[in-house]
Design a protein around this nucleic acid. Sequence first.
DNA 1: ATAACCTGGATATTACACATCCAGGATCGC
DNA 2: GCGATCCTGGATGTGTAATATCCAGGTTAT
Lengths: 159, 159
Amino acid sequence: MNEGVEWALHSCLNLTWVDDGQAVTAAKLAAFYELPAAYLNKQLQALARAGILTSTSGPRGGFRLARRPEDITVMDVVAAIEGPEEAFRCEEILRQGPGGHEDVDYRTTCVISQSMRRAELAWRRELSRQTIADLKATVESRFPYTPDSTRSWFANLRT
Amino acid sequence: MNEGVEWALHSCLNLTWVDDGQAVTAAKLAAFYELPAAYLNKQLQALARAGILTSTSGPRGGFRLARRPEDITVMDVVAAIEGPEEAFRCEEILRQGPGGHEDVDYRTTCVISQSMRRAELAWRRELSRQTIADLKATVESRFPYTPDSTRSWFANLRT
DNA sequence: ATAACCTGGATATTACACATCCAGGATCGC
DNA sequence: GCGATCCTGGATGTGTAATATCCAGGTTAT
């Protein structure tokens, strides 16, 4: 699994704590965790293309959440970074076996493929259950100071 | 996810259909799907180390299931091939952030890490539910001829 | 004794994740 | 208008892990 998933989720969470309507540049989001700015920017672009963030060009530009945290699931973020492919990709080796047919789609026919897909669906379902708002609420209940300290960190940052 | 998982599961299933007590060589198991024999052999060794297969040296040697198909879960096979690592490995970027502590284990503390782990547990639980015997039964009910044709394919194979 | 077969380490080869860079375009403030 | 800021997207480099092969050594059946 892509490391960018971790970066993206943390960045989304941080964006919930900055002043509303305030855009944050990729450079600042990267500085928060000392991440490579150019590469994090790529991930943020992916989030923007997926409709999770909106981006603004020019001075005072940057990224902000495109929707309310309640309407962004963890699965949305993971899918935006990881792409549409499944973790288990069936290579349809049954086609090479005896009795294999050229024109059969073994990704749907093969019992093993189905079994792996079922597990992956359980994974997706679990990730879809949690929203950014849920994560935010959990963090805030455990670490009440986080919203203030995060907001002020971004406010006081000198690049 | 490792392609070897697919090979290993299909090979385990095939082993349920050969005559009991009959060992099958890595070369034969590979020939069934036209897989690279030397590489499949590596995966079979991993299954043997995990106690899923037993291996026998010498003429008439090869691999066979170490336990009854009912006692081998799909998760067992996946874990043997993939290793113990989780798909999402938390890099603990919180440590690099403001207020990060050297001595905190963020893999257990971080809310995002917990969320990803919860999803992965759902995935594992689903894979643990299915056994090789379940897969075998499903295949046999949908394709009744598979046991016979598989057994005879291995019996008639000339290397 | 010999041939069949697994074992485990060494060694390519290849694909992809990770990372950087740059030219181009949008936007703001002056 | 102009320059500074910042996103966009493509090209490119780098490093590591998955893929794949090979071989020397050990075990066992005939």
